[in-house]
Design a protein around this nucleic acid. Structure first.
Lengths: 333, 333
DNA sequence: GGCCAAGCTGCAATCGTTTGCACGACCGGC
DNA sequence: GCCGGTCGTGCAAACGATTGCAGCTTGGCC
C-alpha cells in the first residue's frame, strides 16, 4: 500500500541500498543517480517508514513531553515553543498531560521513555528520588525545575522576585505579603527565596501567607487573610492566584492598588486583560521551550554529554495593579 | 541494552513465538507456561518494542492530533480529554500545533499520517478540498468541523446561539449585534446561522458587525463600531472577543450590562473570572475530546467503517454581563 | 598495457516482533 | 493398535529500513 524504498529502487533501476544512501549520506553516491533517485522518491511520494528506520538505527525521531496541566495557561506557551523547535528539527512530539497527578508521573515517563530519543519534563511534580530515576532512562532536559545532575532550563524566578520587591519598595511599601503556592513546587521555592532576599535588601517586612492551591479559587479564598495582615502590597505565587485575589477584593470593594497592590508571576495572557491589569514577572516561555529542545538535541548528538543548566531571564511587567500605598494606613473613609 | 522478547524467551526456556503469544493471544498457549512467561517478563521489565511490532502489524499504537493554537484557551480542554482517553486505550498521542497557519496544515497532516493509526483534526482551518484529501490518508475524526463524508464531533453551536438570542430577547433586547470572527471559520458560520435563526424567531433586529480577528485585541478594536450600532446587546464570535470588547467599553466608561449586554461563546475559564462575569455558551470540551477518540477507535476496529457525525450539546451560562436594556435609549445622563 | 586506488553500487545481515505452517505429543474412539 | 483430532510449541519468513563488506568499474599514472 505505502510506497517503500524498494519501489523507489525498482523505479530508479538501483538497489534499495543506493536509495537509502541517496537519501541519508549524500557523499556516498554518484551525484547523477542521487538526483534521479531523489526526484523519483519525491514523485512517488515516498516517505521512509520511521519505525523500520528506528528499528535499526535505534533512534525513533520522537521526543516526549510531560506537562502537568495544559489548561494551566503557563504551559501552552512552553509547549508551543518546544513543539515548533522539535518540528523544525524533524522530530515529532509525544505530549502527555499528567493532570497534576504527581504519583502517575513515574509510570508515564517509563512508558514514554521506550518510544522516544529524549524527554522534556516540564515542571515535574514527582519527588527528587523518582525524578533522578526518570532522567536515567533516556536523555532528558528538565524545564522549570533543576537537579544538579540533570540538564535543565529554568527561569530567573529569584531575580524576578527581587525586582518585584524592589519595585514595590520603590513605591513606598514597607510591609508586603507573599502568598505561597504548593509546598512541593520547585519554582514556588525559588520565588519565595527571591522575595525573602529582596525584602532583606530593601528592609521591607515580609509576611508569609498561604500556602494556597495555585488557582483562581486559591486566590479568592485567601482575600480575608491578606486583608487581615499588616501589608499594603502582596505578591502571589502566580498570576492565577493574584487574579483570584483581585476578584475577591473587588467584591469587597477594596481598591487595587490604592489600598493594596497585587502582583503575580508568569505574565499569563489574562494578566493584561483584567482591570486593573496585573503587575507581574514575565517568563519567556517560547524561548525557554526552544532552548530546552536545543539542549536536548545537543545532548543526543554528543556521545558523552554533560549536564548543562540554563537559566533564562525574566522581565518585570509593571501594570496597573501596583501603585503607591495610601498615605493613611487606616480604614476607608 | 533493552530487554527483548528473546531474553524473556531464554529465561523461560521457550521460544520467542511462545512469549509473543503469551502476551497477545492468551488462548494459544498453555496456561502454566503463560503465567510463567508473564511473571518473567514483568520481572525482567520487558516492554515490547512498538516500532518492531508496528513494522509487522502495520499499526503504530499512535494517534495524531492537529490543533490550531494551544494558547487559545478553547483547545487545552479538548486536548486534555483526547489525551486522557487515548492513554486509557494504550495509545500515545502526537500533538501538532499549527500556529493558526492554515497553509501549513496539509503538509503537517501528511507527515503525521505516516506515523499514526488515526488522526484527530481539531478545528482544521484548511479549505474543504484539502481537508477531503487529508481525511483520505488515514482514519480521521474531525472535531469542531464537519464534512458529510467524514466522522466528526461538533458542538451544538446553532442551538447555543439560538438560546443566547432567546435569553437576550427575554431580557427585553430588540436590537442586537453579532461580531463575526474569521470568514473561514466553520463554527463561526454555525454561530452566525444560529443567531440569524434566533433573531427571526424572536423578531429581534440583527446587526452584523465585523469580522474581527478572534482575539482579545479584535474585541477591543471593534468597541466604537459596536457603540455606533443601534443595539443594546451584542454577541461576539467567542469569549476572547467579548472580553476584549468589555475591556474597551470599561475604558470608555460604558456600563455593562446596563448600557450594553455582552456575550460570547466557549465559556473559557476567563469568562468566569472577569468583572462583570461573562454570559456565554459553554462547550463540553473534555467530553467532546473523549467522544472523538471513541469514534476514532471504533473506526479503527471496524473493517468497513461508516462516517458518523456526533453533536454534543452546549449550555447557556448566564452571568453578569447580560441584563435588561436601560429603559431610555438615549445618551448617558 | 598493466596496476592501483578511488569511487559507486549491491549483497546480505540485522533490528525486535508477529504469525502461518509444521511438528510432536497426547488422547479417545473404533 | 491405529487413526484422527487437539493442543502446545518452535521454525522461519516476513515487515522496511540501514550498513559493513566486497566487488565492480573507472581513470590516472608509469
Amino acid at each position: 500500500m505505502a510506497v517503500t524504498i524498494r519501489d523507489v529502487a525498482r523505479a530508479a533501476g538501483v538497489s534499495a541500498s543506493t536509495v537509502s544512501r541517496a537519501l541519508t549520506v549524500p557523499g556516498k553516491v554518484d551525484e547523477n543517480t542521487r538526483r534521479r533517485v531523489l526526484a523519483l522518491a519525491d514523485q512517488l511520494g515516498y516517505r521512509p517508514n520511521r519505525a523500520a528506520r528506528g528499528l535499526i538505527t535505534g533512534r525513533t525521531g520522537n521526543l516526549g513531553l510531560l506537562v502537568p496541566d495544559l489548561a494551566n495557561p503557563f504551559f501552552p506557551g512552553l509547549v508551543k515553543g518546544i513543539q515548533a523547535r522539535a518540528l523544525e528539527s524533524d522530530y515529532q512530539l509525544f505530549v502527555v498531560d499528567t493532570d497534576e497527578n504527581a504519583a502517575a508521573e513515574p509510570e508515564l515517563v517509563r512508558q514514554l521513555a521506550k518510544q522516544v530519543d529524549g524527554m522534556l519534563l516540564c515542571s515535574p511534580r514527582m519527588r527528587p528520588g523518582a525524578l533522578r530515576e526518570a532522567i536515567g532512562l533516556v536523555p532528558t532536559v528538565l524545564v522549570n525545575r533543576a537537579l544538579p545532575e540533570a540538564s535543565s532550563v529554568t527561569f530567573a524566578d529569584v531575580d524576578g522576585a527581587i525586582r518585584l520587591v524592589t519595585h514595590l519598595a520603590g513605591l513606598g511599601h514597607r510591609g508586603i505579603g507573599y502568598i505561597g503556592g504548593p509546598a512541593d513546587s520547585w519554582s514556588g521555592a525559588q520565588r519565595l527565596r527571591g522575595v525573602r532576599v529582596g525584602c532583606l535588601q530593601e528592609s521591607v517586612e515580609l509576611h508569609e501567607l498561604g500556602p494556597v492551591p495555585p488557582t483562581y479559587d486559591g486566590g479568592q479564598a485567601c482575600a480575608d487573610a491578606v486583608l487581615a495582615a499588616p501589608v499594603t502590597a502582596v505578591i502571589a505565587y502566580n498570576d492565577l492566584v493574584a487574579i483570584g485575589l483581585c476578584q475577591a477584593l473587588a467584591e469587597r470593594s477594596v481598591p487595587v492598588p490604592s489600598r493594596l497592590s497585587v502582583t503575580g508571576f508568569d505574565d499569563i495572557p489574562m494578566a493584561g486583560m483584567i482591570r486593573p491589569s496585573l503587575t507581574t514577572v514575565g517568563m519567556p516561555l517560547g524561548e525557554a521551550g526552544r532552548a530546552a529542545v536545543d539542549l536536548l538535541l545537543a545532548q543526543l548528538a554528543d556521545p558523552a554529554p554533560r549536564a548543562r543548566q540554563q537559566r533564562v531571564p525574566t522581565t518585570l511587567q509593571v501594570r496597573g495593579s501596583t501603585g503607591a500605598p495610601r498615605p493613611d494606613d487606616g480604614t476607608p473613609t
